[in-house]
């Protein structure tokens, strides 16, 4: 502790850049695993949510049960879900898959409703016109309904990725290797005197990651819906 106390200058909150440069390869590894954990579950979640949302929309009687089950899943706190996944799926406690699986469950819970709402936002006339033009149901889903639902689904994806970045950091506190570990390190190094650089670095990288991922979804949404820009200008 005396070592750190003596190294007064580098404990300033603004020295997170030096801290990063000193521990570059380690920190980049944390950032990479954090990114992976934030993105993959959302993509897998969306792939599962799409058919579920389609079923909920197409067969109206399935809507209430699907929504209440996903609603309950979404209600369960993330950290509880982390520790509950292994015993329920018969995995080892602290299995590397526990966090991605829990986050996927979370993303599915959020996105099923978003997909169903997005499909509901497609005007009835449009669906009927597409049917009248001779689209088969699956064709109609991919070529008409899904593209029109993109803005609503994208709004849900933004929420999912941004909150995932924060939730993944929580997983860091139970020992998983990601940016959350910078907080654990900083906390442990802060006795007795505050040592800010890793904490600030973790916050900065998390926010940057959230902003970048959020912008990517926004960009994707714009690329997929050129007609909306045509209206806007």
């Amino acid at each position: 502790m005396t070592v750190l106390a003596a190294d007064g200058a580098s404990s300033s909150p603004l020295h997170f850049v030096e801290y990063f440069l000193d521990h570059r390869s380690e920190d980049l590894g944390l950032l990479w695993s954090h990114t992976w954990l934030s993105v993959v579950p959302v993509i897998v979640g969306l792939l599962i949510a799409l058919p579920l949302g389609w079923v909920a929309r197409r067969h109206r009687w399935t809507y209430p049960p699907i929504m209440s089950i996903t609603g309950v899943l979404y209600t369960i706190p993330s950290i509880a879900l982390f520790v509950l996944v292994p015993p329920i799926l018969g995995l080892d406690t602290l299995d590397p898959l526990q966090v991605p699986i829990a986050l996927t469950v979370y993303s599915v819970a959020l996105l099923v409703r978003v997909v169903a709402d997005g499909l509901a936002s497609v005007p009835d006339e449009t669906v009927q016109a597409a049917t009248a033009l001779g689209f088969r149901p699956l064709e109609r889903f991919f070529k008409v309904e899904l593209p029109i639902a993109v803005p609503v689904i994208a709004a849900g994806l933004r929420v999912a990725v941004v909150s995932n970045v924060s939730i993944v950091a929580v997983a860091g506190t139970i020992g998983l290797s990601n940016l959350g570990q910078l907080f654990t390190q900083g906390f442990q190094l802060s006795t007795p005197d505050a040592y800010y650089p890793p904490i600030v670095l973790g916050i900065v990288l998390c926010v940057l990651l959230a902003v970048v991922l959020d912008s990517l979804v926004v960009l994707l949404n714009r690329l997929l819906t050129p007609w909306r820009r045509a209206v806007a200008t």
Partner: peptide, 19 residues
């Protein structure tokens, strides 16, 4: 504010405030 990592802010505030 939602983009802020909750744990990070918690640790930061604790380190600032608890002393």
């Amino acid at each position: 504010l939602r983009a802020l990592p909750t744990v990070g802010v918690l640790v930061l505030l604790t380190v600032i405030i608890s002393p």
